[in-house]
Every structure is written in structure tokens, then in C-alpha cells.
């Protein structure tokens, strides 16, 4: 079938193009320019070529931040996705309690990032916080300001608390869209609970779960505020993830060249993962 195409509609997206150009493309170009130069301020720059890139690629500090970032993102995905699906499966399908569950689930998502960080900071303080004091009272040595393991535990628990709801809501929406006839057919065939999940619910949730993984990956890969408010990247630099390290280099040390090179490498990593997810999702849909 030959579709009639009206290309005038493209003019409608011109304002968006202009906004994106001003708030994304121009700053990105500036970052590229900074990444090959050195400056001592006063808008005086010295060309350095690929020096900052070589430095960043060889720097232990960058490798450390990257590894911590990958560990953080991998861990929260491994917890939040299965947990979110499990909660969505356990939620009532309709009625009063379904609404109550949805509202309760949406609550953590409404709280601003810095408030979440501050809340958890107080909650986890070993001398006055409910969590910190409680754990110590139980005889578990816990102090997120001093022990790396405690700090990691708190950062991950905080992210799981804040963002599992997003996975729950997406998975719940996916489950709601499944036609009742599928369940009836499964009942007639005498399918087990696991078989219903494996062959009906999971395939139907595939798309929303891909979106959930993509959103959680991107958000956690760029996470800054919550761990910054909670631990400030410490103790030492044990919870310093990429964005915290980047801000330290750019705004703490005014190392604009190194920070720009780091930004570009960071950007390339996100771009690659987004492209992979996008391609897999789109090609999966076409099939």
C-alpha cells in the first residue's frame, strides 16, 4: 500500500530542534572543545590534543569510579527488576486495595532526590537513626560514615527503596493488559502457576520490562544526588561513582580538560547502551 506522506509536518518539530540544539548540542560541542585544551581561567586556552583522553584512559581513579558505577548499576538492576515483578504479581488486580497499593507504590517516586538522600542519611545514622541504631542494637556493626560495606549497603537499599516502585508500576501495567482469556485457557490446560508466569505473563511483560531496565540503567548510571547527599562519595572514595567523580574533577578541582574527556567517554558509554537497548527492543517488536 502506498501511503500519502505530507512532509510539511516536519516543520512542526523545528522548535524542538532549536531547543535541543541550544541546550544539548551547543554545550556538548563546548565540552568537546574543552576536552582537547587546557586553561588557567580568563578564557585563555592551550591546545593539548588527545592528552586528557590518554590520561583518563590510564587513570586508576577513572577505572575505580567506572567499576564502582558498574557494580552499583548491576546490583540495583539485579534486585529491582525481579523484586518489582514479584510485587506487581502479588498486587490485587482491581478494587479498593489495588488503588491503595498503587498510591503507596507511587509515594517514593514523588520524593525529590536530595530529600531522599537527606532522609536516608538521618535514618541510617548509627547513633540516632532508626536503621543505624537498630542494626547496632541487634549486634550488627553498622556505620555508613566509616565502613565501606555499610555505606554500599545503605546506598543500594536507598535506591531499591526509591526506584523499585517504578518497575512495579510498569510491570503492573503490563500485567493489566493481559486478556483474561489467556488465563482461562491456561486453567483449562491445567497449567501450573510457574507455567502461567513463564509462558503468559513474562512474554506479555517483555516490552515494559525492557523499558524498565533501560530507564533504571540510565538513571542509575547517571545517579548523583542521592549518594552525594548520603555519603558524599565516602568513606574515602568507596562510593564515588562516575558522576560524583566527574563533578569533583570539573567543579572541585577545576580540571576542565580532564573532566571534559571523562564526560565524553561517559557519554559514549551511555550512547552505546541506549543504542543497544533501542535496537534490541525495536527489532524484537518487528519480529
Amino acid at each position: 500500500m502506498q501511503k500519502t506522506l505530507n512532509n510539511k509536518a516536519w516543520f512542526m518539530v523545528l522548535p524542538v530542534l532549536l531547543i535541543v540544539a541550544l541546550n544539548a548540542v551547543v554545550p556538548l560541542m563546548t565540552v568537546v572543545n574543552y576536552s582537547v585544551q587546557d586553561t588557567f581561567g580568563n578564557n585563555v586556552f592551550f591546545f593539548e590534543g588527545t592528552r586528557w583522553f590518554s590520561e583518563v584512559m590510564a587513570s586508576e581513579r577513572f577505572h575505580g569510579a567506572l567499576m564502582r558505577q558498574l557494580f552499583f548499576t548491576g546490583t540495583i538492576l539485579a534486585i529491582e527488576i525481579p523484586l518489582g515483578v514479584a510485587i506487581a504479581l502479588a498486587m490485587p488486580r482491581s478494587g479498593f486495595w489495588a488503588s491503595v497499593c498503587l498510591v503507596l507504590m507511587a509515594l517514593p517516586l514523588l520524593i525529590p532526590w536530595n530529600v531522599v538522600g537527606a532522609m536516608w542519611n538521618i535514618y541510617a545514622l548509627p547513633d540516632i537513626g532508626l536503621l543505624g541504631f537498630g542494626l547496632n542494637w541487634l549486634g550488627i556493626p553498622y556505620d555508613f560514615t566509616q565502613q565501606p560495606v555499610s555505606a554500599w549497603f545503605t546506598v543500594i537499599l536507598m535506591d531499591v527503596w526509591h526506584w523499585t516502585s517504578l518497575v512495579v508500576l510498569l510491570a503492573y501495567a503490563g500485567l493489566q493488559s493481559i486478556d483474561d482469556n489467556y488465563y482461562r485457557a491456561a486453567q483449562i490446560d491445567g497449567a501450573s502457576r510457574w507455567a502461567v508466569f513463564r509462558y503468559i505473563q513474562l512474554p506479555k511483560m517483555k516490552h515494559v520490562l525492557t523499558i524498565a531496565v533501560l530507564l533504571r540503567f540510565m538513571d542509575s548510571f547517571m545517579i548523583y544526588t542521592e549518594p552525594f547527599v548520603l555519603t558524599g562519595g565516602g568513606p574515602g572514595n568507596t562510593t564515588t561513582v562516575l558522576s560524583i567523580d566527574l563533578v569533583k574533577a570539573a567543579l572541585g578541582e577545576f580540571n576542565l580538560g580532564v573532566a571534559s574527556a571523562m564526560s565524553i567517554i561517559y557519554f559514549l558509554m551511555t550512547l552505546l547502551v541506549c543504542w543497544l537497548f533501542y535496537t534490541i527492543t525495536m527489532q524484537g517488536e518487528q519480529k
Binding site: N33, V36, N43, F45, F47
Partner: peptide, 15 residues
């Protein structure tokens, strides 16, 4: 555009 700190190399790249 001085704040963007252009160099001919990066200019060529975007060009």
C-alpha cells in the same frame, strides 16, 4: 563564540 573555546581541530571535526 569565544566562550565555546573553538580550535581549528574541533572545528574540522564537527565540520
Amino acid at each position: 563564540l569565544s566562550w565555546m573555546a573553538w580550535t581549528w581541530q574541533t572545528g574540522a571535526f564537527f565540520g
